[in-house]
Amino acid sequence: MTAVQLDLFGEILAAEEESRTVTDAALAAERRCSETRASLTYLHHRTPAEERAQFERWVADVRDPADAAATTHEVRSRTAVARWSIAPIPGGWAQCVDYRLDGYSQGATPWRGPYPTRDLAEDVALARLIRTFGHPSNASGYPGVATVLRQLTRRAEALR
């Protein structure tokens, strides 16, 4: 073998060893993920009856009282709308948000709570909307989104 062939052979062996090391690390990470996923599934598994009971408690404790007493706020531009609602519920305050971005994206959250104060509930709702409207995929190239984001930020600053 020539010196060049020996150098190439050495590089090939080193690359194969590196490949084995990377493969071993990937397999170990996959095993850890599988173990974690299995333990989480076990820890959070509920029967359909338990899921139904939890939903019915949420309806009675949060959704229905919030729907009955909600105050809704809205910020809009030509192409984007952000809406949030705040409501007193037994044990505190609840909030939910709803938004549409330039006709290509929309989302909403269910009523969440209880929060100890109205300001905290509103601050959480505004923070979610600001995160959504401020995300780089939403904020660039859509002037209506930027307008709503500015208005939301001003409203959040006024709470503080």
Rank of each mutant, 00 (worst) to 15 (best):
E50F: 10
E50C: 14
E51M: 10
E51T: 10
R52G: 05
R52H: 08
R52A: 07
A53L: 11
A53W: 09
A53F: 07
Q54H: 12
Q54C: 11
Q54L: 12
F55L: 08
F55T: 01
F55W: 12
E56T: 00
E56N: 03
E56Y: 01
W58G: 06
W58F: 08
W58A: 08
V59G: 02
A60T: 03
A60N: 05
A60M: 06
A60S: 08
A60E: 00
D61M: 06
D61W: 04
V62G: 03
V62M: 01
V62T: 13
R63L: 06
R63V: 01
P65V: 00
P65D: 03
P65R: 06
P65S: 05
P65E: 04
A66W: 01
A66K: 00
D67Y: 00
A68K: 15
A69V: 07
A69D: 14
A69L: 11
A69N: 15
A69S: 15
A70H: 02
A70S: 08
A70P: 02
T71H: 15
T71R: 15
H73P: 11
H73R: 09
E74Q: 15
E74H: 13
V75S: 13
V75K: 15
V75E: 12
R76V: 05
R78Y: 00
R78H: 02
R78P: 03
T79E: 08
T79S: 15
A80M: 07
A80D: 04
A80K: 04
V81E: 12
V81M: 09
R83Q: 14
W84F: 14
W84I: 03
W84S: 04
W84N: 04
W84H: 10
S85K: 01
I86E: 07
A87F: 06
P88Q: 04
P88R: 03
P88T: 03
P88V: 01
I89D: 01
I89F: 02
P90S: 10
P90L: 02
P90Q: 06
G91M: 05
G91A: 04
G92W: 02
G92D: 02
W93I: 07
W93G: 09
A94G: 14
Q95K: 07
Q95G: 05
C96W: 09
C96A: 12
C96D: 05
C96Y: 08
V97G: 14
D98A: 08
Y99V: 03
Y99R: 10
Y99A: 06
R100M: 08
L101T: 12
L101C: 13
D102M: 06
D102A: 15
D102K: 10
G103L: 11
G103P: 15
Y104W: 14
S105M: 10
S105A: 11
Q106G: 08
Q106W: 13
Q106V: 09
Q106H: 12
G107E: 10
